[in-house]
């Protein structure tokens, strides 16, 4: 067990690519030997991971492996659940996000999140996107109009909704709702976007639009995406982390991890899925 943990905590040493080391030198997020508990149940064990900035990192693994839990520790969404505990450093740009002087509100402004199920507010399309800037104190109508248009354009939704910004967001299709949620997350101008299976409830056409969008967005944002779809991970991510039973088994360049995995478990999982 001990040796396995050590291996998992130094995945970059295991694969040892030059590119990888370069990216690891400037991580956006970093966890060092992080453990996570729901009450007395330990969900994450000794996770050491450096998430490179301005790229897409995919978190893959079987259901219940802790990848979503890991994602939610990064914007402290687990704080909402009672009796949860994080042990070990979680660093954003080298600063501990769980230290008492960090304001959760400003952390979540920097680290946006898109959920598996699209969750538009029961309000108009405009108010959905403008909600973020508004709660952070933007009261300027003109600037809100600009932000809404910019974010809807970024989310590739503008052309479809520009004539009905006042309509209820609930009237949009599933794929449109999810892109609206991405636009809404972009409106607070975050640095990181956390995506928890953002396309799993969408049809293939909407999925491919969301994927294109993610590839587009990585120019400016650090994106961490949880996905069950391995082709998706292979298509859109540069980096992949494989989780299993609350442990980080392997982390590396997506190409490398998918074609030439270091760990036996990773290989089993990937080949098992591909048949």
């Amino acid at each position: 067990m001990q040796t396995f943990g050590q291996l998992a905590s130094s995945p970059s040493a295991a694969s040892g690519s030059r590119l990888e080391q370069l990216a690891a030198a400037l991580p956006k997020f970093e966890t060092r030997g992080m453990n996570f508990f729901y009450g007395t149940h330990q969900a994450l064990f000794d996770i050491s991971l450096k998430v490179p900035q301005k790229s897409v990192t995919a978190l893959i693994g079987p259901s219940g492996c802790g990848k979503s839990t890991y994602l939610r520790t990064l914007n402290r969404m687990n704080d909402i659940i009672e009796h949860t505990r994080v042990m070990g450093p979680v660093l954003l740009d080298g600063k501990e996000i769980y230290s008492p002087d960090v304001d959760v509100v400003s952390l979540r402004k920097r680290v946006g999140m898109v959920f598996q199920k699209s969750t538009p507010f029961p309000k108009s399309i405009f108010d959905n996107v403008a909600y973020g800037p508004r709660i952070h104190g933007n009261r300027n109508r003109q600037s809100l109009v600009e932000i809404v248009e910019k974010c809807l354009r970024q989310a590739a939704l503008w052309e479809e909704v520009k004539d009905r910004l006042k309509d209820s967001a609930m009237a949009l299709s599933g794929g449109q709702q999810q892109r609206l949620c991405i636009a809404r997350a972009l409106a607070t101008s975050p640095e990181v976007l956390l995506m928890d299976e953002p396309a799993s409830a969408l049809d293939p056409a909407s999925t491919s639009r969301v994927e294109d969008l993610i590839i587009e967005l990585k120019q400016n944002y650090t994106i961490i995406i949880v996905t069950h779809n391995m082709q998706q991970a292979a298509r859109i991510s540069e980096w992949t982390a494989f989780f299993c039973q609350g442990r980080l088994v392997e982390f590396g360049l997506t190409k490398q991890l998918f074609t030439n995995p270091v760990q036996k478990e990773t290989e089993d999982y990937i080949t098992g899925r591909f048949g």
Binding site: L107, F121, Y131, I135
Partner: peptide, 27 residues
């Protein structure tokens, strides 16, 4: 009011009272 509305609001950096006042209460 679905928990997803609250979570979406928190995820955007809304404080507790903002979430209650602007999302939960109107719904």
């Amino acid at each position: 009011v679905p928990a997803s509305v609250r979570h979406a609001s928190y995820a955007l950096g809304a404080s507790k009272w903002q979430t209650i006042w602007f999302q939960v209460l109107p719904a």
